[in-house]
């Protein structure tokens, strides 16, 4: 398992799916570990009942069917697939509606889905998913990207309410790939995935959705920032180490 995770850290993120399916076939007895520890690009299915797309993940899957957050039905139909309790379903419906507005304001397009389910210790778990195709042929407003994909997975474990407060544990993963291609600079591709965790104890007076939403918003901002500033920055630094720009070379010349 350690070696498998080691490979996932090295294989180009754009090949995650291929790498994961290769590992699954090599290590079938580790499949549940692999599926829970390796995040893979999100898939989408259309809810035929309301004609809206929804995102597939391990958390809305039962056997080979996936529950749509819009109609609450399994696709393809499944007779005894689990559903959240009616209280939780109410929150799920609300979360999906609000999160869609949030998604539109930050992503200017894309698809989002939220799934909720009871967990064993009186709390619940929520999974917020966003998939954005930012390529110029899809939802890329500005048309800069030949290819551009952003997949965000936020899983929040919400503890039981105690003295008006609840514990929230958020684990977020962002996977992205962006490619530009033009005559003068050729193909330029950056791809990556990072995962972070955030823990908070918050008063539930304003509601769980409000707390979860704020945590996700803060986390997405942080992830975007560290991808942009730190991770992409490090690859840029590497390029400049390999072939320092002219001004650096000139600065060094007097010494040599």
């Amino acid at each position: 398992m350690e070696a498998a995770m080691g490979l996932m850290r090295r294989i180009p993120p754009k090949h995650t799916e291929t790498a994961l399916s290769a590992l699954l076939s090599l290590l079938p007895h580790h499949s549940s570990d692999l599926l829970s520890q390796v995040d893979q690009p999100l898939q989408v299915l259309c809810d035929v009942d309301c004609g809206k797309d929804f995102i597939l993940c391990e958390y809305n899957r039962d056997a080979d069917s996936y529950r749509s957050p819009w109609s609450n039905k399994y696709h393809p139909p499944l007779e005894d697939g689990p559903h959240p309790s009616s209280d939780l379903r109410k929150l799920e419906i609300e979360a999906n509606e609000v999160f869609a507005v949030y998604r539109d304001q930050y992503y200017e397009g894309g698809i989002s889905s939220v799934y909720l389910w009871e967990d064993d210790n009186e709390g619940f778990v929520a999974c917020f998913l966003i998939k954005k195709d930012g390529s110029k042929t899809a939802h890329g407003r500005r048309g800069y990207l030949e290819e551009g994909a952003w997949d965000a997975i936020h899983v929040i474990e919400v503890g039981p309410e105690e003295e008006g407060k609840a514990h929230y544990c958020l684990t977020s993963t962002v996977m992205l790939s962006l490619t530009t291609n033009d005559e003068s600079s050729g193909i330029f591709n950056l791809s990556g995935s990072i995962r972070r965790q955030m823990n908070m104890d918050l008063p539930v007076a304003e509601g769980h959705l409000c707390n979860m939403g704020r945590m996700i918003e803060e986390m997405e901002g942080k992830l975007r920032n560290s991808l942009d500033q730190v991770y992409f920055g490090k690859t840029k630094e590497m390029v400049c180490t390999l072939r320092p720009p002219a001004e650096l070379v000139q600065m060094r010349l007097p010494d040599s």
């Binding site: 609000v98 507005v101 949030y102 304001q105 930050y106 992503y107 200017e108 954005k132 930012g134 939802h139 890329g140 407003r141 500005r142 048309g143 800069y144 990207l145 551009g148 994909a149 952003w150 992205l176 962006l178 530009t180 304003e206 509601g207 959705l209 409000c210 939403g213 704020r214 918003e217 997405e220 901002g221 975007r224 920032n225 942009d228």
Partner: peptide, 23 residues
């Protein structure tokens, strides 16, 4: 430019999302 087509730094409204009001 490029990154903005995936996710903006701030929402189109240029203020943090009003989770409270949406509720």
């Amino acid at each position: 430019n490029t990154f903005k087509d995936l996710r903006r730094k701030l929402p189109v409204t240029r203020t943090l999302f009003p989770w409270h009001n949406t509720m």
